[in-house]
């Protein structure tokens, strides 16, 4: 009885992963997922950081009113709509008539999406620094910009590293909707195997396991960094 299960398992395994090198759907997909996540996080970092600075300048000086308005519009729209809808709009509507690399589209979509969330993270980080730090910097003769880069940002960035890494974890999972524009990421890879072998269990569980392992590793890194930061925090 038991041996029968083992042999079914073996057959399933071979059928789903070994035959026709189907495991490649998973490894290739994983690479796509990692690439998407990595570049989208970077793009989001640039967007988020810029927006946080614009909004902070506006909050403090009242300048940049129009840019600030655009930022708020962007934040409202991006955070108020599902990422998969944003992805499809960018692919089918905005780039609908142009042939553009799917992966690039996805990086744009996820980066633009993540930027909105990272903007809020940076903003919270900047706001967590007491007013007195800006005042002390300015009173010494530093410009707003110098005070921001030398005094506020180093403290704010340190405070937001763990939250930013959590955003990476979120994004890693969110890229799983890339299949909607027929991009073969990890999830899509598992799904392709399922459609070839007509067995859902193995490929989908394998996909889930791979995500889980990556998330666990990232969480472990967050923990390590948090501990490291609090140890170095000579406060």
């Amino acid at each position: 009885m038991f041996e029968q299960y083992i042999s079914i398992f073996q057959q399933e395994f071979i059928n789903n992963f070994i035959k026709e090198d189907r495991w490649r759907y998973l490894t290739n997909g994983l690479l796509v997922t990692l690439k998407l996540t990595f570049f989208a996080v970077l793009l989001g970092l640039v967007i988020g950081f810029t927006i946080a600075i614009i909004r902070n300048v506006h909050d403090n000086t009242g300048k940049l009113g129009f840019l600030n308005f655009l930022c708020n519009l962007y934040l409202t729209v991006i955070r108020g709509t599902p990422v998969v809808v944003q992805l499809m709009i960018i692919y089918f509507v905005i780039f609908g008539s142009v042939r553009i690399d799917k992966a690039l589209t996805a990086i744009l979509a996820f980066g633009i999406n993540s930027g909105a969330y990272q903007a809020e993270i940076f903003r919270a980080g900047i706001q967590s620094i007491p007013r007195g730090q800006m005042e002390a910097g300015r009173s010494l003769g530093f410009s707003y910009f110098q005070t921001m880069t030398k005094i506020i940002m180093p403290q704010a960035l340190k405070n937001v590293i763990p939250t930013l890494l959590n955003e990476v974890i979120t994004l890693l999972k969110e890229t799983s909707v890339a299949g909607y524009i027929a991009l073969e990421d990890l999830t899509k890879g598992g799904d392709i195997i399922r459609s070839r072998t007509y067995s859902a269990f193995m490929p989908l569980i394998a996909v889930a396991l791979i995500y889980l392992i990556m998330v666990l590793i990232l969480e472990r890194i967050v923990k390590l960094i948090e501990r490291r930061l609090s140890k170095n925090d000579k406060r």
Binding site: P130, E135, A136, G137, K150
Partner: peptide, 28 residues
Amino acid sequence: DLHRQKMGMVFQQFNLFPHMSIMKNLTI
């Protein structure tokens, strides 16, 4: 900014820069 360099200010809450050593606070 230029004039502030000639006017030192000391606050009730000290407002030292916590991420820098004392020496860095003084020399930056």
